[in-house]
Computed example of a mutant assay.
Amino acid sequence: MKYQNILEEELKNKVGHDYFAAYNHTDIIERIDFAVAHPETFFGQKHYFLWAEAKRANFDIYKALAQLVLTIGKARTFERLLPPNYLGVFNSQLIAFIPYWEVQDIFTQNDFNWSVTPSDHNTAEFEQVYNRVKNILERNAYHFRFGTDDKELHTFIKENFVIGKTSTNKIQITKNNFITIYNKWLQIVKPTIQFTRWEEAKKDQILDADFYLADLLSSEKPFSKRKSESSARKQQISYGSLQR
């Protein structure tokens, strides 16, 4: 066993040093045990790749991961910070990851009792989350044994802890995080739009928020449909009031 007979805090330090040295792995986010972010900030904000639960010895990783989901949901952490690419868990023997988007629907369930204690493993809520994360981990090879699978683990981190890696990071936009994501869109996406007449557009009641909403809607449509609609939209703009 690579990490034998050590306390949880030491385990977090060693895992951070051995596998995430190229990243910021020292942040403490509320009651989340371990977080990994890009070493640089973007427009004053951090891009998180991982929020994880850490447990010493050979603690059940399914229970630990379920506890993490309940901890995040109870604190509504995702409403104050953009969520990471992955949620994870590790003990002294192995580390496991699940894509955040695979469990994000749990956070918006209307009938879910978020007042339960995350560490109480006897609630119906814990059982529901436990079954979900167990199913995800059993059908995906997102778990690695320390020492034995080090090569594969380093490769996984290198390939997936990357800015712009979106295939496993589909963030659900709700009324609670809408403004947070909109502000990030203003900072990062808006400057890339090849359109400079924002003030004139406002006179015709065309706002940057319209472009933001168009982005949200177009991302849910097939590319062929988006392409045809985009062409039609360009034609409207070409002959519309903005060209007067």
Rank of each mutant, 00 (worst) to 15 (best):
S92N: 09
Q93C: 02
Q93P: 00
L94K: 15
L94D: 13
L94I: 13
A96I: 00
A96E: 00
F97Q: 07
I98Y: 00
I98C: 01
P99W: 09
Y100I: 08
W101Y: 15
W101D: 15
W101G: 13
E102R: 10
E102S: 10
V103Y: 02
V103Q: 04
V103S: 01
Q104G: 01
D105I: 07
I106R: 01
I106V: 11
I106Q: 01
I106W: 02
F107Y: 09
F107W: 05
F107T: 05
F107K: 02
F107Q: 04
F107L: 06
F107P: 03
T108A: 07
T108Y: 06
T108C: 05
Q109F: 06
N110M: 05
N110V: 04
D111N: 06
D111I: 01
D111V: 00
D111Y: 00
D111W: 02
F112H: 08
N113F: 01
W114N: 10
W114H: 10
W114E: 09
W114K: 11
S115D: 15
S115Q: 15
S115P: 04
T117N: 15
T117G: 08
T117P: 03
P118W: 01
P118T: 06
P118N: 03
P118Q: 01
P118D: 00
S119F: 01
S119G: 03
D120S: 13
D120F: 08
D120N: 15
H121M: 10
H121F: 09
N122Y: 05
N122G: 09
N122A: 09
N122E: 10
T123P: 00
A124I: 12
E125T: 10
F126C: 11
F126Q: 11
E127I: 12
E127D: 14
Q128G: 02
Q128P: 01
V129T: 08
V129G: 05
V129N: 05
V129P: 04
Y130K: 14
R132D: 03
V133M: 01
V133Y: 02
V133K: 02
K134F: 00
N135P: 07
N135Y: 14
N135I: 10
N135R: 15
I136F: 03
I136L: 13
L137S: 02
L137T: 04
L137M: 06
L137C: 01
E138N: 15
R139D: 13
R139Y: 12
N140E: 07
N140A: 01
N140F: 04
N140S: 05
A141F: 09
Y142I: 12
Y142S: 14
F144W: 03
F144D: 04
R145W: 12
F146W: 05
G147Q: 08
G147I: 07
G147V: 08
G147L: 04
T148Q: 15
T148G: 12
D149C: 06
D149Q: 08
D150P: 09
D150A: 10
K151R: 14
E152L: 14
E152N: 14
